[in-house]
Design a protein around this nucleic acid. Structure first.
Length: 591
RNA sequence: CGGGGUGUAGCGCAGCUUGGUAGCGCGCCACGUUCGGGACGUGGAGGCCGGGAGUUCAAAUCUCCCCACCCCGACCA
């Protein structure tokens, strides 16, 4: 039994000044967590109970799916990560340290390499596959900017699983099994989620989906279709390209003097105002222009290369989307020095005429999928103060390829059904992806197939942010008074508040009730503090968020005890001799 | 990494402009009263004023350097 009189807990009357989001604020105010380091939190007794409940549910669901738990060290040697190239690719986000001999170690941000090597160590036959193993482990990532309490910290707990299969069909089955297990897990955690298509990012691999809890303070932006079930992380949205057309009979390209048109808007205004340049039937819009943006890519080995992106002028380059495409390279600005080294680039008037591997600049030129064969554009003429009109793709220019890097707008057509997309935000609580053979290949994980031939194993990787899930749950259940935990996650089933003077009969009655409930299997938090005013007790009970609040107070004289539902706020008075079975029913405990 | 901000008691803050005994509210301790929505009285404890150097008879306060943390952006599972 938890007793408020002795519990290592101090609730705060005021919001912590550094907490912005509800989960962070309330978990600190309620005495669940305390900040110990930038991006590192201490779990206090109530918080640790909640954390363990979440962890237990995750573990039970993994076990129920037939996955086997293992446990690796968090501190690992450099070599495996050197082989997979992630020692370099992870960059500054990797916590690195040295032992006394100067050997490099790291605090693992994730464990693909180690799982792969472990399986290589023990297994060598297709008969051993498929295999699903997982761990629940502390992970370390040296985030540039930890924030929002547990939502983004530098030390956090992740459940990571890995599947090993002999072929792609097997991987698909394993992936589906994990997907189903995740659905069960998040349902049981009472976490709302949207499953979105995702990019695999630094992990490598192909098919990938994220489980996002749709919460405004989330850091991930995703789109979903207002009509069909399409949903995708913004980075993974595939633009629905228009139909390519023939350029037979299309207007010939013409170069026009367009002085003082440094921006898309000034350009559009000018061509609409000039009789010789006006569109024959309608006004030109920014979407008729082709904007060419040159960026520099910083590669993991420290070298730089340039890249040009062509996209409709009504859209900016979305850096996240671009980086998702060019990763692990980082995108940095193309600066004045760089222009100086490429005299064929005329700042503000860059056009397809100078871009492309075979063009004067030699810079690879990738265009937005909306730039299809036969589409005509107003774009830079590679000369100061000049633009070219009706420049037609396929006829007048041919880029080196296509890239998904333009920002996504609410109202854009769904790539699946063509209806309108909407933009929303969420917290990433789970991520599943088909890694394929990247790690198995680089680390040499092969088995003999039924023909006695060596084949490379194909893998899947699956993660749930366990500590983050605690915050995400808190975020979804928070109200203006405090938290309201799902029963299975709550630190207790019932929170019993005693009111009245110390010598009143409420004390002994509450003690007896608590003892009976505990004997029947309910978890009780008893507010037996003496000399604390009832207002404080009621407020603390609402802040802490145990789903059922029981008040043993003034009603006792009339033979009743008050039961309050934290979620709905409903109160009922229950007769003393019926209270135990009544509460056990609420708690779902058979008696 | 860029922009902005803050460091004074456990928490939240004032004091700094114009240098001169370290303050307030909450919390904490003792005693008494109160006891269903953050009670009251009386008396207490608790500070290297983020760190270092400088100016000065004298620095929380002025100057310089450093550090830490927070927010926005960049970045990021």
């Amino acid at each position: 039994m938890l007793r408020m009189s002795t519990l290592f807990l101090r609730t705060l009357r005021e919001d912590p000044v550094d907490a912005e989001v509800a989960s962070h604020r309330l978990l600190v105010r309620g005495g669940y967590i305390r900040r110990a380091a930038p991006g590192g939190y201490t779990w206090l007794p109530l918080g640790w109970i909640v954390y363990r409940n979440v962890e237990r549910i995750v573990r039970e669901e993994m076990d129920a799916a037939g996955f086997q738990e293992v446990h690796f060290p968090a501190m690992l040697p450099r070599e495996p990560y050197e082989i997979s190239n992630r020692w370099t690719e992870y960059g500054d986000n990797l916590f690195r340290l040295k032992d006394r001999r100067g050997n490099d170690f790291l605090l693992a941000p994730t464990h693909e390499e180690m799982f792969t090597l472990l399986v290589k160590d023990l297994y060598s036959s297709y008969k051993d596959l498929p295999l699903h193993i997982y761990q629940i482990q502390t992970k370390y990532r040296d985030e540039a900017r930890p924030r929002a309490g547990l939502l983004r910290s530098r030390e956090f707990v992740m459940k990571d699983s890995y599947s090993f299969d002999i072929d792609d069909a097997g991987l698909q089955v394993s992936y589906d099994q994990h997907r189903a297990a995740y659905i069960n897990t998040f349902d049981r955690l009472h976490l709302p989620y949207v499953i979105v298509s995702a990019m695999s990012g630094a992990m490598g691999g192909s098919a990938s989906e994220e489980f996002l809890a749709p919460i405004e303070v989330g850091e991930d932006t995703f789109v979903r279709c207002t009509s069909c079930d399409y949903a995708a992380n913004t980075e993974a949205v595939q633009v629905r390209p228009p139909v390519a057309t023939s350029w037979q009979g299309a207007t010939a390209a013409v170069v026009a003097d367009t002085p003082d048109t440094p921006t898309i808007q000034t350009l559009v205004d000018l061509v609409n105002a000039r009789a010789d340049l006006r569109h024959p039937e309608r006004d030109w819009t920014a979407a008729d222009t082709l904007k060419n943006v040159v960026v520099k890519l910083k590669h993991p080995d420290g070298t730089f290369s340039a890249l040009a992106v062509g996209l409709p002028g009504d859209r900016e380059v979305d850096m996240k989307r671009l980086e998702a495409q060019v990763g692990p390279a980082e995108v940095v600005a193309f600066e004045a020095d760089d222009f100086a080294k490429n005299p064929s680039l005329v700042k503000g008037y860059i056009g397809p005429g100078s871009l492309g591997k075979d063009q004067p600049s030699g810079i690879p030129y990738l265009v937005d999928p909306r730039v299809v064969d036969g589409s005509a554009w107003i774009t830079g003429a590679d000369a100061p103060g000049r633009h070219v009109m009706y420049l037609t793709m396929g006829r007048d220019f041919t880029p080196d390829g296509v890239i998904e890097a333009a920002e996504v707008h609410g109202g854009d057509p769904c790539p699946n059904c063509g209806e309108s997309l909407e933009i929303a935000r969420g917290i990433e609580i789970g991520h599943i992806f088909q890694l394929g053979r990247k790690y198995a290949k680089s680390l040499g994980l092969t088995v003999l197939d039924h023909n006695g031939k060596q084949v490379t194993v194909t893998m899947g990787s699956y993660g749930i942010g366990v500590s983050r899930a605690v915050a995400a749950i808190a975020e979804t259940v928070a109200d203006d008074k405090g938290l309201c935990w799902p029963r299975e996650i709550s630190p207790a089933d019932v929170h019993i508040v005693i009111t009245g003077k110390p010598a009143d009969p409420q004390g002994p009655a509450a003690e007896q009730l608590a003892a009976e409930l505990e004997a029947a299997g309910a978890r009780v938090l008893l507010d037996d503090r003496v000399g604390v005013s009832p207002g404080i007790k009621f407020n603390d009970a609402e802040l802490l968020g145990v789903p059922t609040i029981v008040v043993v107070g003034k009603g006792l004289a009339g033979g009743t005890i008050e039961v309050k539902d934290r979620n709905t706020g409903e109160r009922v008075d229950v007769a003393v001799d019926e209270i135990v079975p009544y509460l056990l029913d609420i708690c779902g405990i058979r008696h």
